[in-house]
Amino acid sequence: MQKKNSYSLKNEIIRNKASYIMLAPYFILFFLFTVLPVLASIVLSFTHFNMLEFPTFAGWSNYLKLFLEDDIFMLAIKNTFIFAVITGPVSYFMCLIFAWIINEFKGKLRAILTLVFYAPSISGNAYLIWNLVLSGDRYGYLNSWLMKWGFLNAPIQWMKTAKYVLPFLIIVQLWLSLGTGFLTFIAGLQTVDKSLYEAGAMDGIKNRWQELWFITLPSMKPQLMFGAVMQITQAFAVADISIQLAGNPSVNYSGATVVTHLMDYGTTRFEMGYASAIATVLFIVMIGTNKLVQKILGKVGQ
C-alpha cells in the first residue's frame, strides 16, 4: 500500500511538474523563513542560549521556570487571554457586520466606505493620535473634554495608572481591528452567487438574517476561516499597542502581554532559550485556538 501511494504521488508530481516548479520558490522560502525558524525555536526552548556562547541543553528547566517561577509571565498570559477573548470575537464580528453593511452599497460609495473603515489599520499616525487623546496632562483630548464637562477636577495619567491601561489598550485595538479580515469579508461577499438568494426565497427563507445564516456565510467559509486566523493572530500577538501607549515595561506590568514578555527576554536580555520557550507556548496556544475556531465555523449554516 505504501509503495502504491508513493507511486501515485510520484506520478502526480510528474504529471503536474509545471505547477510544482512554479510553486517551488514559494515553498522553499516558506520552509526557510517560516517552518525552519519555528522548528529552531522549539529546539532552542530546551537550551540555555545567550547569543554569545553555544547553546547548552537545559531540558524542561525553561518551561518549569516559566510556569512556576515567572510571575510576570503569568500576568502577561492573563492579560493576553483577556485581550484575546474580548478583542478577537468582537473584532471578528465587527469586520463581518461592517463588511455586510458596506457590501449593500454600490460602486464608488462602497469603495469610499471601505477605505474609510480600513484606513485606521494602516495609518502610521494611529499611535500618535491615541497618545494625544490619552495624554496625562490637561491638554490631552480626553482629560480636556472630561474637565470641560465637569467629570474631572484634575487630569489623570491614563496610561500610567494600572487600572486604566488594559481597558484603553482593548479600545485602541478594536479601533484598529478593521484590517485584512475586513477586506477579505468584503471580497467574499462579492463572490456569493446571487441566484442562491432567489433559490432560498423559493425554499422558504423569509428575511435578511436567514439569508445571511443559510446562504451568505456558508458560501464564504474560506474567507471566514482566513479572517478568523487573522483575528486570532492579531489578538494573541498584540505588542506594539502596549509598547507605544503604555511603554515596556508598563506600570506594574498592567499592559504586559506574552509578546512583550518575549521581546523583553529576546531583544533586551538576549536569553534566547527562555524567549524560545515563551514563543513555543504562544505557538501551541494559537494552534489550539485555531483548531477550536475551525470546528465552530464548520457548523455555520448547518
Rank of each mutant, 00 (worst) to 15 (best):
N131S: 14
Q157T: 14
Y141G: 12
I170P: 10
W149M: 13
W149N: 13
N143Q: 11
R138V: 08
L113K: 10
R110H: 04
G188I: 02
A119F: 15
Y139N: 14
L128A: 09
P155L: 03
V172H: 13
Q190K: 10
Y118M: 07
P155H: 03
V192A: 09
V165E: 04
S195D: 14
P120D: 08
W130Q: 09
F151L: 15
L113T: 11
K163I: 10
L146A: 14
L169R: 06
S144N: 05
I171N: 03
G136P: 06
F117K: 04
T114G: 11
L146H: 01
K160D: 08
T191L: 07
Q190M: 14
V165C: 12
F168K: 01
G181A: 15
I156F: 00
W175N: 07
A126E: 01
Y164Q: 05
V172Y: 09
V116I: 13
L183A: 05
Y118D: 04
Q173R: 15
Q173L: 02
P167E: 11
P155E: 08
S144I: 01
G181R: 04
F182D: 05
L178M: 15
W175L: 07
S195K: 07
V192M: 06
L142C: 07
V172F: 11
K163L: 03
M147W: 01
I171C: 15
L152K: 07
Y164E: 02
T184Y: 10
V116W: 03
Q157I: 03
S121A: 14
Y164L: 07
V172W: 01
L146W: 01
L142S: 09
I170V: 15
S135K: 14
P155Y: 00
F151R: 04
N143S: 07
L183G: 08
K194T: 15
G188C: 09
N131A: 10
I171L: 15
T184I: 15
Y141N: 01
I112Y: 10
A111L: 12
V192D: 12
I170L: 13
Y118P: 12
V192L: 00
L113R: 07
T161Q: 06
Q157F: 08
I122M: 10
L183I: 15
L134I: 09
I112H: 00
L142K: 06
A187W: 09
W158N: 03
K194M: 11
S135G: 15
F168W: 14
I171R: 06
I129C: 00
T191Y: 06
G124C: 11
S121M: 02
F151S: 11
G179F: 03
S123L: 12
W149R: 02
Y127A: 11
F117V: 13
L166Y: 06
T191W: 02
L176P: 02
I122Y: 00
L132M: 12
L132R: 08
L169W: 07
V192Q: 08
P167V: 02
I170K: 04
N131P: 06
G150K: 07
